[in-house]
Design a binder for these strands. Structure first.
Length: 902
RNA sequence: GGGCGGGUAGCUCAGUCGGGAGAGCGCCACGCUUACACCGUGGAUGUCACAGGUUCAAGUCCUGUUCCGCCUACCA
């Protein structure tokens, strides 16, 4: 596109790819390992390799890009580290589904072949999301792109595991873990979703083994009774006094089990007696440990009853439940049931009901790590924004339980542990070929892989090259900021804190900004099943990336969900169009601008002074908002400035000067300011709307072809404040507003040129207003504009009250008295109401003695102004009434008489 | 069970230090004025969930109530 020319309309489709390629070609996203400039770094929350861009990604990455682009323009050595997560279970699921279409399972292929298959899948289909991020305009340093399973990161994973093991922070043992019968793997507590479900509590009779009597137990899961090894009651429970130590017969199984006493049992719940199934309930497991009970697993890895379940073997756990209930009832063991609302744990991946099961797994001892992670935030070494999440963070870390990190799947980092038949356990970062103890070559590596989040926890330093002491690591760690959704505060953020501090001895990031979830316009979570998904790419196709990005930013208020609606995006497409057309207007009027013409400050026109002042303040406002991650406020500020101030007022105000209605100097001065204002506005807009701003930027006259991406971000400059000029302009704008208001209310079309008198008793004000008279004439479309001290309102006029005076619009024969009366009455009523309020305040002695002086002063000023306004309006209304009651013959033609007749 | 957030215009939501209730969209009226009808100008619209309290002054601070939403949790 040649300089100085823009297409009639902005076509995002054509321009977005062009500029993205341009930025790539000029290597503008790349951060140097070392520069003199202060570093700024963000690591991307790595999307799953199977991921497709959804609203959550879009929001997350647009916010990051806004910060990154701003910092880069501010001259920091800015790194946005991109990459992807191997997403263990999710990815394995995808490839297994693919196999299932050919009626194959991973076991048919074998481990090695299956993993090879996943890698091939990854090369072919994985990472679609990376290109989608590019469409969002993300300015990641793609040369550094990493993958959690790549060589370097795998090395980091092993290294950390070994360290943790040596420090006694990783251990292996048999515990009740959360087992997903569909994924066939253990999952961590965090990966269990709790779903409220209507169920029942069944009461079951367990007869005493000796003598008469029974104990009634209460349970929500009767099928687990197959694995019961005790019945527990509270030691203080009178009802069971004398029974503790006796035995009961487990119905249907005819196994004799003891009655034990344990404080864990609540006396006021259920029947007061709890069946203990150590293999399938974490609490029962703990009870069993305390009492040395037998542990009998009765449910296998697929959720079926195993060989310990007697006649129920082979049945699905829920099918078995029905059968057991039937059998219990038939044999008189069922004492009753009551409806019960409780929570059932489900696998967060596949929504299958979790089966708690005893199993040998690897765990991270989290307590010591969590303490440090909490301390770091408490000491302010890392800031959590918005701070209300701090409480949640501390709460979780304070009650943290050990982290089960082994997974019985194949896709992931295989646990770097080898077992020798001699009993030796080898934990090593590199593959050993024989047992260091007995020298045997028969060693076998642990079959399990690590939880995906284990490698994610290392992301801030593993991506920078750790365990190598790279320059990048030195420069960019700790990272400056992490931007992510609050939903992974525990999954990811807390664990990065733990690992970062443990491995690096320093927190992984200075600031953590937690953004909200994106919901649909009804506030519901977007999901495929609800069918309420808004596809970001579809929005981009329809409205352009810039409009879409701006929308995301504009509605990201801290601590609140983002409710996405298509209409909002459309609205911001209009904003893009507005910017585009403002630029076209500017370019058309800058065609002959030679630049750098000497402008003496004294010749600066008021509109120029005003807009510069406003721009300067807007720069400060936006910078402050961005500094504190108030994206919505920053977006609103730039929107208001661009549209309401620059377009609505400034561009209209300067048209006469540009069209040569003033002096040549004025014209050049105005061109200079126009170019400056447009440029600065584009710079401010760029982080939000990278594409349209670049397109315009490169068409601007004068400058070189440096990308806007690396042009300096505007800075607030105290010395450029100009309240005097701004106030003069504001007074002029108020008058224009008052005249327009009268025009509207009196229903005078915009084409009619009006005669207006501006009356003010203040000589200074009159002088100042005369400076801006031409603007009033132009923007209010006047035939004449007279400034006078004469308070007389000519007959047939309509008056508007402004600060320090009034504007009188001459209507002559077009005056509609009813309208005028209605308008005046309405305004009078409003003024009266306000005046009463203010006067009541000023009459209050407590107010006068206790309120801040500035507040009182303000109220006094307000009172004076309102009184003045009230007086004028009253007078006007009186006159109108006089005219209206005048005899028909007199009418408007003889208003003076009518007035005096009153 | 514990914790957090929210209830402000028809809709979706801002509102930072307690001091004259705002925006966008929608709606009404008038206008195609040579950047833009994806536009301009003007206009209408509020029991700031409810009840108390603190204060000269409360959408804003405190207490309680209520209705939504979310997170978290080993009473079977």
């Amino acid at each position: 596109m040649p300089r100085g020319v823009l297409d009639k309309t902005f076509e995002p489709k054509h321009k977005e790819d062009k500029w993205y390629q341009y930025w790539l070609k000029h290597d503008l996203f790349h951060a140097a390992d070392e520069t003199r400039n202060k570093p700024f770094s963000i690591v991307i929350p790595p999307p799953n390799v199977t991921g497709m861009l959804h609203m959550g990604h879009a929001l997350n990455n647009v916010l990051q890009d806004i910060v990154v682009r701003t910092r880069r323009m501010q001259g920091l050595n800015t790194l946005w580290m991109p990459g992807m997560d191997h997403a263990g279970i999710a990815t394995q699921n995808v490839v297994e589904q693919e196999l299932a279409r050919g009626n194959l399972t991973r076991h048919d292929l074998g481990r090695e072949e299956f993993i090879a298959r996943i890698w091939r899948w990854k090369e072919k289909y994985g990472g679609v999301i990376i290109n989608q991020l590019k469409r969002l305009g993300c300015s990641c340093d793609w040369e550094r792109e990493r993958f959690t399973m790549d060589e370097g990161l795998s090395k980091a994973v092993r290294e950390v595991f070994v360290r943790l093991y040596r420090d006694g922070l990783v251990y292996r043992g048999d515990y009740v873990i959360n087992w997903c019968p569909r994924c066939h793997t253990a999952i961590s507590d965090l990966e269990v979703e709790h779903k409220e479900t209507n169920g029942f509590i069944w009461h079951i009779r367990y007869p005493l083994a000796e003598g008469e009597g029974e104990v009634v137990v209460a349970t929500t899961r009767p099928e687990t009774m197959l694995g019961d090894t005790a019945v527990a009651v509270n030691p203080a429970d009178e009802r069971f006094r004398g029974l503790v130590g006796k035995k009961v017969v487990l119905p249907l199984m005819n196994r004799v089990i003891p009655i034990i006493a344990d404080g864990y049992v609540a006396m006021d719940f259920g029947s007061g007696a709890v069946k203990i199934t150590p293999a399938h309930d974490p609490n029962d497991f703990a009870v069993a440990e305390r009492h040395g009970l037998e542990i009998i697993s009765v449910i296998d890895g697929s959720g079926r009853i195993n060989e310990n379940g007697g006649g129920y073997q082979g049945q699905d756990r829920y099918e078995c439940r029905e059968n057991i209930l039937r059998d219990l009832a038939e044999n008189g063991y069922l004492a009753g049931r009551e409806p019960y609302l409780h929570n059932i744990g489900q696998c967060y991946r596949c929504k299958t009901d979790i089966e708690p099961a005893v199993s040998k797994q690897w765990f991270v001892r989290t307590k010591p790590l969590a303490q440090e992670a909490a301390r770091a935030v408490a000491q302010g070494r890392t800031r959590i924004i918005p701070s209300l999440w701090e409480g949640t963070y501390f709460e979780w870390l304070g009650n943290i339980r050990d982290w089960c990190i082994s997974r019985q799947i194949w896709w992931g980092h295989r646990i770097p542990v080898w077992y020798c038949p001699c009993g030796e356990i080898i934990v090593s970062a590199s593959d050993p070929d024989r047992c260091p103890d007995c020298g045997s070559g028969e060693i076998k590596q642990d079959e399990d892989v690590l939880d995906t989040w284990f490698s994610s926890a290392l992301w801030p330093f593993s991506t920078l090259g750790w365990p190598e002491a790279t320059k990048a690591l030195k420069t960019f760690y700790p990272t400056s900021l992490l931007v992510t959704g609050f939903d992974i505060l525990f999954f990811w953020v807390a664990r990065m804190m733990m690992m970062g501090i443990y491995v690096m001895g320093e927190v992984p990031f200075r600031d953590v900004y937690l953004h909200a979830l994106v919901r649909d316009e009804n506030g519901e979570k977007m999901s495929k099943s609800r069918g309420n998904i808004i596809d970001p790419l579809e929005m981009i196709d329809k409205y352009g990336t810039d409009a879409f990005r701006f929308t995301l930013a504009a509605y990201t208020a801290q601590g609140r969900d983002v409710r996405m609606s298509e209409e909002r995006i459309e609205g911001h497409k209009h904003f893009v169009n507005k910017i585009w057309n403002a630029a076209r207007f500017a370019l058309a009027n800058l065609a002959d601008y030679e630049g750098a013409a000497s402008t003496r400050p004294g010749e600066e026109t008021l509109p120029n002074r005003w807009i510069r002042h406003r721009l300067n303040l807007t720069i400060r406002e936006i910078s402050r908002h961005l500094e504190e991650y108030r994206f919505n406020e920053a977006a609103q500020a730039i929107y208001q400035f661009t549209w309401r101030e620059m377009c609505d007022w400034y561009l209209e105000l300067i048209k006469p000067a540009l069209y040569g209605k003033g002096t040549p100097d004025e014209r050049i001065a105005t061109q200079k300011t126009l170019l400056e204002v447009i440029s600065q506005t584009l710079l401010l807009l760029h982080p939000f709307m990278p594409f349209v701003t670049e397109e315009i930027w490169q068409a601007l006259p004068g400058g070189d072809t440096t990308s806007i991406m690396i042009s300096p971000y505007p800075q607030f400059d105290e010395t450029r404040e100009d309240y005097e000029g701004a106030e003069k302009m504001a007074a002029c704008m108020e008058i224009i507003g008052a005249i327009r208001n009268i025009r509207g209310e009196m229903e005078i079309g915009p084409a009619a040129r009006l005669k207006v008198i501006m009356s003010s008793p203040d000589e200074g004000r009159r002088a100042s207003l005369s400076q801006t008279a031409s603007h009033v004439i132009h923007l209010a479309n006047l035939e004449s504009f007279v400034i006078t001290c004469d308070p007389e309102e000519p007959r047939g006029s309509v008056t508007g009250v402004v600060t320090g005076g009034r504007v009188i619009v001459l209507m002559e024969d077009t005056l509609d008295l009813d309208r005028k009366r209605a308008k005046t009455e309405k305004e009078l009523a409003r003024t009266e109401k306000e005046l009463i309020q203010v006067e009541r305040k000023l009459a209050n002695r407590d107010f006068l003695s206790k309120a801040a002086p500035a507040v009182i002063e303000k109220e006094r000023g307000k009172a004076a102004e309102l009184k003045h306004k009230h007086l004028i309006l009253e007078g006007t209304l009186k006159k109108i009434k006089g005219l209206q009651i005048a005899p028909p013959t007199g009418g408007i033609s003889d208003p003076a008489k009518a007035v005096h007749a009153q």
